[in-house]
Amino acid sequence: MAQQQQTAAVTALYVDLQRAINNGDHEKALKVSSKLFGDNPADDRAFHCKIVSFIQLGKFDDALLTMKKNQELATALPFEKAYCEYRLNRTAEALRTLRNLENPDTRCQELLAQVLYRLEEHRESLSVYRSLMKNTQDDYEEERETNMSAVQAAIQ
């Protein structure tokens, strides 16, 4: 899609949205991203922000419903979809969503490891964690170690 000139009003809303995100104000982020997306249903960034706001507010049903109503935009957000399914205990659906991906990114692999753990597929979960440990370097190394220990304990 060609980059279009953004109006000053839209820029002002994005400034509000960035501020809300920086402040961890997910209610406000939801309000502003909903306004942006309502005004421009082609705005995939506003759509993404709206979905993340729902997730951060624990509104997983609302997130899934919004994705269902906007399936074309939602195809770009498989991690978010699978995460909502996981949190709603639709674990088999979450697994299916993640398995359908040709090249799952590290976030999807992380979620896959959690989904497999919940499904008591411990050996496969462990193998996903081993690969993640090798290929990631972020702020969650300790949490990942703890999760891997839980998986290992379940195998023994």
Binding site: T11, C49, V52, Q56, F79, Y140, T146, N147, S149, A150
Partner: peptide
């Protein structure tokens, strides 16, 4: 039950808005 963190939630982050500001 062993401790198990929801790391995926921490990874459910907002996209960058840099080019929109």
């Amino acid at each position: 039950k062993p401790l198990f963190f929801d790391v995926a939630l921490s990874l459910a982050d907002y996209p960058s808005l840099e080019d929109k500001l």
